[in-house]
Design a binder for these strands. Structure first.
Lengths: 187, 187
DNA sequence: GAAAATACGGAGCGACGACTCCGTTTGTCA
DNA sequence: TGACAAACGGAGTCGTCGCTCCGTATTTTC
């Protein structure tokens, strides 16, 4: 898994432009958006896209990774706060993201395949780590019931995110509240 | 919305075979399965499929309708039981279905678009009606909190179904329990 | 049982999407 | 600054998919 020699300057620029474009195109049109659309948005030729990401799936995975890292950043930022609010804030944030960006939920489910599907996938591992930290802290603080693990949480996160895609904001919030109530320790 | 004259005998047979085939093909491969696969499975020509369902979407919708009706049947069967168990039983059943049949969750989300998307769609209306009956009864029996409506419930149902697709059975059950806990009246 | 109506099958059309190939351009390094 | 490697662009290939068209087969009707 070496990295060969460094990319030429223009190649680096283009790679970044492509990732940016892919993120916004996938967000707007879903993962079935054509590679050509991504290239157009990035202002490069299709050939360039395929040189950087030899198969469409690699492009998707790269975008996924970026997203999960953004989520992880959010988690890190929130970790300054108290464990409980950090946990619920993160969950809300993730779902909110999914609501606005059509392919966002796919990130999560694809990532989660880690355990049950094909290759392990870096993305899945990172997501699991992020979520687990948050969860354990919140459980120790007594804000979340202790009989669940990261797997259940990720399942719920994915479900909530997918459901969020087509639902009005207020319904989304109320549905989320229900899940949160279920997550709290049994009184 | 008349029904013209009755179909010829062979035409009726074929229509049924196509619907059957579509159900199982979509379940196995998802909604992106090709029409030709459906035709092959049904043992008819592609032309026949398109004569009965002039656009792919009409075939999908027909399959959806059949599914929602099956759900409604389940709901009716359960309604003999007490309101609470009927409600949670239905929810569990629906999610369980989604878990085994890949395109099943799509039925629900597509149907739910009723309120927020394109045409009203018969499917959506039937689903909403089914769910609402069950919900109201359960609420009256004190088994479900009263501050939620069918919209929130359908959102949760969709979310749970989508999440169920790629998750192991035990995780699925535990996640579902969390949602159920959230649905119960605040003690 | 023959004519008319209806339905069937599947080759073929047009569109589209992933991916390749190669002549041209740009960056790098001595 | 010249020469070589690295990267670019996008027309073109191949495969797939939705859908049409029409000669053939099956029902129905009288």
């Amino acid at each position: 898994m070496g990295e060969g020699r460094p990319l030429r300057a223009d190649a680096q620029r283009n790679r970044a432009k492509i990732l940016d474009a892919a993120e916004s195109v996938f967000a707007a049109q879903g993962l079935s958006a054509s590679t050509e659309d991504v290239a157009k948005e990035a202002g490069v030729g299709i050939g360039t896209v395929f040189r950087h990401f030899p198969v469409k799936e690699s492009l998707i995975e790269a975008v996924f990774l970026a997203r999960v890292r953004k989520l992880a950043d959010k988690a890190a930022a929130l970790s300054e706060a108290q464990a409980g609010p950090a946990f619920y804030g993160f969950f809300t944030y993730a779902v909110e993201q999914a609501a606005t960006q059509s392919a966002y939920a796919d990130v999560l489910s694809e990532a989660a395949v880690a355990g049950g599907g094909e290759e392990p996938s870096v993305v899945g591992a990172e997501l699991a780590a992020t979520v687990e930290t948050l969860l354990v802290r919140a459980q120790q603080a007594g804000a979340v019931r202790t009989d669940i693990g990261p797997a259940e949480l990720i399942a719920l996160l994915i479900g909530a995110s997918r459901a969020a895609e087509r639902v009005s904001p207020d319904v989304r919030l109320r549905a989320l509240d229900i899940v949160f109530d279920g997550l709290r320790p049994v009184r």
